[in-house]
Amino acid sequence: MTRRIALPRRWVLAAIGTTVAAPAPVRAQAWPSGPIRLVVPFAPGGTTDVMARLVADRLGPRLGTTVIVENRAGAGATIGSTFVAQAAPDGHTLVMSNIASHGIAPSLYRNLRYDALKDFAHVAMVTRNPSVMVANPDFEAKSFAEVVRVAKARPDGLDYGVSGAGSSNHLLGLRVAKAAGIRLTPVFYRGAGPAMTDTIAGVVPLMFDGLPSATGHIREGRVRGIATSGAERAAAVPDIPTFKELGLDIVSYQWFGISAPAGTPAEIVQRLNREIRAVLADTAVMQRFDQLGGTTLEMTPDQYTAFIAEEIAVWAPVVEASGARVD
């Protein structure tokens, strides 16, 4: 929770105090015995960080403590995840597990210092969002069929901008190219922002981006939405078809959830799971996530663990084929 500058800090603490005081149930065990750290393995300010903070904000009062968001960014979200994998399994250190650190990193990094399944007790899914393929509005291809036609007509195929080598959007681009039988060359940027700038400017004709960060640009016409990667159309951009509709066997989401170090007592994991799901069921939270372009998703710890195992299996061959493996 926020304890940042002089005055508001006290207000906030007071606010927490009152909300906690009212429904405080008798706690079976002495957990939590102090503030809980939620490690966000990304730099602050991105959509994922914002979402994590939204959850942390509401989770704290429910547990009768504060949930402190701590950003430990770097190395494709693996630095923060490594930190938590090695932390004490007492339920006071959690990590925002996500597609990069727990879905792709196991296949991408040879020297990864954790096992995405064995070193964690996965607690709960939080949210997911599809990716979207966008095009410069002046680019000749206005639909996916035209993109395929243009790409086939050019000997070099087409370029697409993307946030980083080994990112889910990079790999999604490769999957789309393979499924559609066209040649798409990734052009990497340091983050989605600069890649979007160059797509708007027409330096690259196409881009793959997470839907939350692309929605505004699509709605305001700076780029054209070509296709989304969800199982069905996204509520935020209902007129953009899915790859599935277009006949490609691709359904892909960016996701994140919350995980604890392996060995965290099962009761704590269950309790956290219940409280997180209660937070997600809150309409205000759902609306907020909706605005941000994500869908909240409730899963039990077992379901979330199985989901992560499935994701690792899906991405492994794609990483292999991309040649992006980092040694």
Partner: peptide, 25 residues
Amino acid sequence: LGIPANAVMALMIGALIIQGIQPGP
């Protein structure tokens, strides 16, 4: 454009998005 010129600006965009505002023209 709703595009950050540097890391601080990226945070500002985050702040605006939290507020439900899409930065841009």
